[in-house]
Design a binder for these strands. Structure first.
Lengths: 173, 173
DNA sequence: TCTGGAATAGTCAGTCTTGACTATCCACGC
DNA sequence: GCGTGGATAGTCAAGACTGACTATTCCAGA
């Protein structure tokens, strides 16, 4: 259900970390996977601690400001596995975004629609090119499967978009 | 960007409506398109009125409780077209849900993973069957394109899931 | 005619999310 | 020996979202 909580539990399952470290990792490596913002991650970490899924202890490195280090408790590990099982079965209502716009597309002049969809296609192409550059991950197959999954869906989207644009271009109806 | 606002503007673009009516329509016909809840719709309608995109006037039918009827203003129509254009180009970060779970899949025993993905596949199959029943919509091509789009992505997802399950089943790695 | 359940029409308190902001530390050039 | 820009490590107020709840009306059946 809650992909954000699952993500944080998952990151903590590898090693204890403090908030800043986790946010760094997300910003650098997981921007494509989640759009969660810093403040949200801090809030969820607090919640995990409050609910007994993570323990906190404050650490001071040199003269730096103190950091709160979060570690999964046994309950937290159980929670992680539970959410993980759930998320494999039911990846949350995949209300594919963008379809609302599609539904109302008749309200816009046909050439504006085509123009817009062309731009959309260009972006999808970019995303595909980017993902195709990602090297195999190495540790386990999960990450590679996730990338593969995203690629499969993006390619299907691309092909469909091309078809639609062609159809709209030829005789406008 | 904000699909919810776009959806409400779009519904109002066809005719003025009161909140309850809009929520009825969403619950009955658009459950697959959005997961927006009643209270959210009321809140967004308020916001639209506050920002001058919709006008409100109170109506009393018989002895029933009074209702607030919302109608698009010219500014609202402009806003609608603007959001519509945007959403065609950039359908919001399509962070395809479920990929977080995939990423951590190595943390779960292989057979639990396979079991989970089988259930997921069954659900996808159901959704496809359901959508295939939807008859052509009639008014314009937008709605039909949206359905087609969803179907295309669901089928790609289904095919990928089948492949993954087969791979995992045969030699567990 | 009386009653219980569905339809009508919302509201509200609590939670979640985020843009903007704070504050310190360190390395480096000048 | 000093300023300043990036890295470090968060916090906070404001707005968005929703589950649970309220309250009235209508109507079908006993």
């Amino acid at each position: 259900m809650d992909e954000r909580e699952l993500l944080l539990l998952g990151l903590l399952s590898f090693q204890s970390q403090h908030g800043y470290q986790i946010n760094e990792f997300i910003e650098r490596n997981l921007a494509r996977v989640t759009s969660m913002k810093k403040a949200t991650a801090y809030a969820i970490l607090d919640r995990l601690a409050r609910d007994g899924y993570a323990s906190v202890h404050t650490e001071q490195a040199g003269n730096r400001p103190p950091r709160k280090v979060y570690a999964l408790t046994p309950r937290g590990e159980e929670r992680f596995r539970e959410l993980l099982r759930q998320s494999l079965v039911d990846p949350g209502e995949s209300a594919i975004p963008g379809d609302v716009g599609l539904m109302f597309l008749d309200q816009l002049p046909r050439d504006e629609v085509i123009e817009g969809l062309r731009m959309r296609l260009a972006r999808v192409d970019e995303q595909i090119a980017e993902l195709e550059q990602v090297p195999p991950h190495g540790h386990g197959i999960g990450v590679d499967l996730a990338v593969e999954h995203k690629l499969v869906l993006l390619r299907a989207d691309r092909d469909w978009l091309r078809g639609v644009i062609t159809r709209l271009d030829a005789g406008s109806d």
